[in-house]
Computed example of a mutant assay.
Amino acid sequence: MKLIRNLIPGMIALALVACGGGTSVKPEAGKPAPTTQKPAPKKGGYYLDDGPGDNPPADIDNIPDAVPRAETPLPRATRPYSALGRRYTPLSEHTPYKQRGVASWYGKRYHGQKTSSGEVYDMYAMTGAHTILPLPSYVRVTNPENGRSVIVRINDRGPFHDNRLIDLSYAAAYKLRLIEKGSGIVDVEALDEHGRPITTAAAPQTAPAPAPAPAPTEIAPGNLPNVMNEPVTNPPITGAYVQVGAFSVKANGDRLVDTLQQNKLADNVQVENWYNAGTYRVRLGPYSSRQQAEAAAEKIKQTLNTNAIVVYQ
């Protein structure tokens, strides 16, 4: 293991040369610390001196999501590169992409450092790192365990662990409630400049195929790359719902339910103010298909000028 630790810095340097960007690539946030450091405790500890900042914003949940807009991928970020013994071929176009996998996060250790796109990493901005998605690009990240969803700007490369799909900023992970776990299962979907899923029937012939993500059923609880090394479950999908709001006070959710009914936005499905894990979530469903749920979410957005997301239960 000591030999492997000594080799990793050199391998990461080779990855930087392959990228051609001359910018830093973050090591794994969940990688064990050098033997000179004390091991992190089972609860509340972070490897590599990472973790929350000393003076976080008063209400991180109110930090706005990234706003998608039309951007051209950086040419240097489309070049094939290698990291930790594996070769990656980034996408050169904004193409359909949807995967489920493990998300991890990085915080104060990398705050203020340059990302692979040349931008400065801000742990309180809504950003993320991905091995092959265009830099920059935008994705919606959803935590299927609690239905929380955020939009982040992909501006960095990583993570390079086989069982990880995406690295998130501290703020994005906080809003998804992944901070305490260190990592968790998420759904990642590429968005166009209007914030809608990219649904082109076929990717351009010149675009390289994305590397396959590990199937969730292959993730063993004892081998998870999170800082706490705790099991991450993959909840079964049994139906599509539209979540319109999440509240700490039940009365706020009840008022939203009344508004939905008064505007005839819940005529054909059940609408409920569902309580789970300290939060009241207003959701409609189940819908018989994802397409029906997305159509209902879009109608709610247009009618009430509020956010509505498709979640699975």
Rank of each mutant, 00 (worst) to 15 (best):
R283M: 13
A172L: 06
S117L: 05
S104E: 06
K299D: 13
L14T: 08
K250N: 12
N305A: 15
N62F: 01
G278H: 10
L84E: 13
I12C: 03
N273L: 07
N163M: 15
N252I: 02
P80R: 08
G45F: 09
T131V: 12
A308L: 07
R157M: 05
A173K: 03
A277N: 15
Y124L: 01
P68D: 09
N155F: 06
P68N: 09
Y170T: 03
D122V: 00
N252K: 10
M228Y: 02
I166P: 02
S169E: 03
R76E: 15
G85L: 08
G101M: 11
V227G: 11
A296I: 00
A66G: 03
I179Q: 07
N62C: 04
K114L: 14
I151Q: 01
Y280P: 01
E230S: 13
G10E: 09
K301W: 05
D167V: 07
V282N: 01
L256I: 07
L224I: 15
D122E: 07
Y88T: 02
D187L: 11
D59F: 11
N263E: 13
K181G: 15
E119V: 02
G158H: 08
L135V: 09
T95W: 01
D162S: 14
A220I: 10
H194W: 09
R86D: 04
K175A: 09
P134R: 09
L168P: 02
S289M: 06
P216Y: 08
R100C: 07
V188C: 11
N305R: 14
A293D: 06
T259W: 00
G285H: 06
G182L: 10
V25N: 01
P34K: 06
E180D: 15
A103W: 05
D54P: 00
K31Y: 14
T131R: 15
S92F: 01
L176H: 09
L7C: 10
P73E: 12
T233P: 00
R76G: 00
T200S: 14
R140N: 04
V311E: 01
G184V: 09
R283L: 14
D50W: 05
D49S: 13
D156G: 05
Q113K: 14
G245H: 05
V139P: 01
I60R: 07
K250M: 14
T35M: 02
D65F: 07
E218C: 06
P197A: 14
N273K: 04
Y110E: 10
T89L: 03
G44N: 12
A246E: 04
G101C: 11
A172I: 03
K264P: 00
K38D: 04
I60Y: 03
R86H: 11
G128A: 15
